[in-house]
């Protein structure tokens, strides 16, 4: 649905870009000039304080602005660049303004209290000087999250299918799920750190728990909601019980399963950060805690930015996976 719509507007802009033989993307050019202005302002204006990476930030802003200006001209020749640029150009203008104001109220005029609100160059400094520790933290977080999430998703999926399919399993598991499921996984934290041999295994368990609950419930409701007519068709064609589960119930329930996987991923982020802050001593959550201990607020902002980027990256990845597996749904529901 939306893909078709995009293609359509895409081809429209292409013809619009081609007909007047040469046309510049004005908004992108404004964005480019804005970024150059931010860079010049950063480099030339006197600072209230001493920041090591001011030249790098200023030059980067000028370089980025120059690149944008070049692309805004190149958009006249290349429809591909034109469409790509058009999609982001207004945001780039707003970001230029944002960075300009940020630079002004922190480094240049110190209108905001200093250690709590570092200027952009201070955060760039963290990336340039502390990337090793930051990278290590990202890697540790991913490893912990990945293990827990995969275990939780797999267990949740199997449990959900079992409850949805078998009355006997439902009888025993359903009350457990009703009673224990709504408890936030973080509530188990003190107990888990005490019961498990290592903080790593305790955290894996908690992340799996946070993921497993929504995946179980949604898989179950997906399986329970499969139309009886599908089973009738399959049964008259000679389907065994195994076939009914694997080839009818599970594919029909997949859209629900994915809703559970999305919810589980969101929940697992929360548990990951808390677990890292309280016990694991590694990963981005720990990095945040550590930065706060040293009152290095620039490091905290940098870590938050990396965390936001990682989380949204993982969500995007899951979206891509769903788009692949559930492409048949495209014509049936609005994405």
């Amino acid at each position: 649905m939306s893909a078709v719509g995009d293609d359509h507007t895409g081809s429209l802009t292409m013809t619009a870009a081609r007909r007047p033989s040469w046309r510049l993307d004005t908004i992108a050019l404004i964005a480019g000039l804005g970024w150059i202005a931010v860079g010049v302002f950063t480099l030339q204006w006197p600072e209230e304080g001493d920041f090591a990476r001011t030249p790098e930030f200023g030059n980067a802003a000028i370089g980025f602005g120059a690149l944008l200006a070049l692309l805004s001209v190149a958009a006249g020749w290349s429809p591909v660049i034109a469409t790509r640029l058009k999609a982001v150009s207004r945001w780039l203008v707003v970001l230029a303004v944002w960075f300009g104001v940020w630079e002004a109220v922190t480094a240049k005029y110190a209108l905001l209290p200093m250690p709590f609100f570092p200027p952009p160059q201070a955060i760039l400094e963290v990336f340039l000087d502390d990337w090793r520790r930051l990278g290590e933290s990202v890697w540790r977080s991913f490893a912990l999250l990945g293990g827990g999430y995969l275990v939780g998703a797999a267990v949740g999926f199997i449990t959900g299918v079992a409850i949805g399919w078998s009355r006997a399993v439902g009888y025993w598991v359903h009350p457990l799920l009703r009673f224990v499921g709504p408890l936030p996984a973080t509530a188990w934290l003190p107990l888990a750190f005490f019961l498990f041999p290592s903080s790593w295994s305790a955290s894996t368990f908690l992340i799996a728990l946070a993921t497993g609950f929504p995946v179980t419930v949604l898989t179950w409701s997906g399986i329970a909601g499969v139309s009886k007519a599908y089973y009738d068709v399959a049964r008259t064609l000679g389907a065994s019980e195994r076939f009914l589960i694997l080839k009818v119930a599970i594919p029909a329930a997949m859209p629900h399963v994915f809703v559970g996987l999305f919810m589980g991923l969101g929940g697992s982020f929360a548990v990951l950060v808390v677990a890292e802050m309280l016990g694991v001593k590694a990963g981005l959550g720990w990095y945040l805690q550590w930065a706060q201990g040293w009152a290095s607020y620039a490091n905290m902002y940098a870590a938050l930015a990396v965390m936001a980027l990682s989380c949204s990256g993982l969500i995007t990845l899951l979206f891509k996976l769903r788009d692949r597996l559930l492409s048949w749904q495209r014509g049936l529901v609005q994405w």
Binding site: S227, A229, Y230, D232, V233, T236, L237, G238, V248, P251, A252, M254, L326, W328, Q329, L332
Partner: peptide, 15 residues
């Protein structure tokens, strides 16, 4: 499977 039904609704599997 020797007795196959064509139902009133086609009930094709959408996936």
């Amino acid at each position: 499977p020797s007795r196959v039904v064509v139902f009133q609704d086609p009930t094709l599997f959408p996936w």
